[in-house]
Design a binder for these strands. Structure first.
Length: 472
RNA sequence: GGUCCCUUCGUCUAGCGGUCUAGGACGUCGCCCUUUCACGGCGAAAACACGGGUUCGAUUCCCGUAGGGAUCACCA
């Protein structure tokens, strides 16, 4: 290939949402293309008309967009190219590299049953391979006349050299009896027509590659390079499937509150490494990524680690961006829309808030107490703290705070420390009940900073509410 | 079952014949910081699946065994 430009493609079938495994395949294709100054193309494999749906296509594009894997040129829709696929099949038929097979579904099932009974490998026996006594008016499929002798070797960029004997491969169907192309035909034709040079996909396609190569050779087309990457497994070691922990990437965003750069970083490190580096930016990934470094064994998905990485990126994220991300969640918790004052409070508190969250949900949950209207709800921990507070402490603190000339965290803390001193209490015995009163929780960002942010009236009011609660 | 692939701490990985008393990260546990929870810092426990070779020398190379995975459609 030498000077030829690298072209990769991501080819999901729109029968469901873009799941995490597909996202990783897309990432590797994207990275490889960018690393080589090539093109990253997108093809929607919608030839399965019964299972392909518009919402799924939208979800895939949405997911890719969220992860910011920008593709080149137009999206190719495979179904629209059916005529071209059929054309190739007929071309093969004409030049003797394919043949008509009139075997019926029932007949083939019978054949397989016999093979099963005889403990023989299940494969098409080539019963129509050399016949020409074609019955009239009967439906037939077009099968590839694949080589039966010798073997095929693929120098896979990830799996290494893999060899399969041609005797193991049967003559696959190219065109169905209704004239529509099979997946095997469609991928090969599309990859060729799109100029794909590197086929990077899940290793569940490794076996397919050998049959596809036979088709490519029959057409005398240039052979692409293959890279079959291992699938992702669930935490229990079983293959990740739709009903087994494999969420759509949209769900990582909407339900789990993940940041796209965190998902990308995690996916990159799953099955690939660069020395001891853990946090790798997009630019570094493009510079460092190589197929040879991709592991050959399947990796287990670890939500704990993803959470941790997500927390890292949240802490590194711009405060305004985080405020925007929690907006709707906070609004829902509050039961009302946020206004500019609310957002200003969140923005101001964000540096402290984001240290305490590993996902956007928790970030939102940990933020709402600032904006709740009085009297704010008390959680269990807060109720206990108030119940066990030293008698009169809250009232004393309230009086001290009310007399402060400048409502600043520093002065508030001074007063709290003074109160602890004179009452022979530990600072915690003063601060914790106050925290409960002011935040409704036993844990929060620095108490005095919170009180400063809340302001004199709101803080004093919340303490009054707590006082009323204790007396009740 | 046939074919193909894989096998380093619980998990993701570094290691590409000697630097390995095997490194990092997540998780776990302990300590520090501290008004709480976090963040941060320090530290601990924790792995080369097993058996043969090759070699002066194997985590690294080869072969078996065991275990795991993928695939065997007129689905993609």
């Amino acid at each position: 290939m030498g000077a030829s430009k690298v072209v990769t493609r991501f080819a999901p079938s729109p029968t469901g949402y873009l799941h995490i495994g597909g996202a990783r395949t897309a990432l590797f294709n994207y990275l490889f293309a960018r690393a080589h100054g090539g093109e990253f193309r997108l093809r929607i494999e919608d030839t399965d008309r019964a299972r392909s749906t518009e919402p799924a296509i939208a979800a895939i594009l949405d997911g890719l967009g969220w992860l910011d894997f920008e593709w080149d040129s137009d999206v190719v829709y495979q179904f629209a190219r059916a005529a071209r696929h059929a054309e190739v099949a007929h071309q093969l038929l004409a030049n003797g590299h394919a043949y008509r097979c009139y075997a019926t579904a029932a007949e083939l099932e019978e054949m397989r049953a016999a093979q099963r009974a005889a403990k023989q490998p299940l494969r098409y026996d080539g019963r129509w391979r050399d016949r020409s006594d074609w019955p009239n008016d009967l439906p037939y499929v077009i099968r590839l006349k694949a080589p039966q002798e010798g073997s095929v070797t693929i120098d896979d960029l990830v799996q290494g050299s893999v060899t399969v004997a041609n005797a193991e491969l049967d003559d696959m169907v190219l065109l169905r009896s209704d004239g529509t192309p099979t997946y095997m035909l469609a991928v090969v034709v599309d990859d060729h027509d799109m100029g794909v040079t590197h086929v990077i996909r899940g290793d569940d396609h490794l076996n397919n590659a050998f049959r596809q190569l036979a088709l490519i050779r029959a057409m005398q087309w240039p052979e692409p390079l293959y890279a079959h990457i291992p699938l992702i497994h669930g935490s229990d070691g079983a293959k990740l499937s739709k009903r087994h922990g494999a969420l759509g990437v949209n769900e990582y965003r909407d339900q789990l509150g993940m940041l796209p750069e965190a998902v990308e970083n995690y996916l990159l490190r799953l099955g690939w490494g660069h020395g001891d580096d853990e946090f790798i930016s997009r630019a570094q990934a493009i510079a460092w990524f190589d197929l040879a470094g991709v592991g050959r064994g399947p990796a287990r998905f670890d939500m704990k680690k993803l959470e941790n990485i997500n927390g890292h990126y949240i802490r590194a994220a711009d405060d305004a961006r985080l405020v925007a991300l929690i907006d709707s969640r906070v609004a829902q918790a509050l039961g009302r829309d946020l206004n500019d004052t609310d957002r200003a409070i969140l923005q101001r508190s964000m540096p402290e808030l984001k240290k305490r969250a590993n996902n956007i949900n928790d970030l939102a949950t940990g933020s709402v107490f600032y904006l709740r209207s009085r009297p704010i709800p008390m959680d269990d921990g807060a109720s206990k703290l108030l119940a066990s507070a030293a008698p009169g402490m809250l009232a004393s603190a309230r009086a001290l705070f009310a007399a402060i000339p400048d409502w600043t965290a520093i002065q508030l803390e001074e007063q709290a420390r003074a109160l602890a001193e004179t009452s022979a209490l530990k600072l915690g015995q003063v601060a914790q009940p106050l925290r409960a009163a002011v935040t409704g929780s036993s844990q929060s960002p620095g108490l005095f900073e919170v009180m400063e942010t809340l302001g004199r009236d709101e803080t004093l009011g919340r303490i009054d509410d707590a006082l009323a609660l204790i007396e009740a």
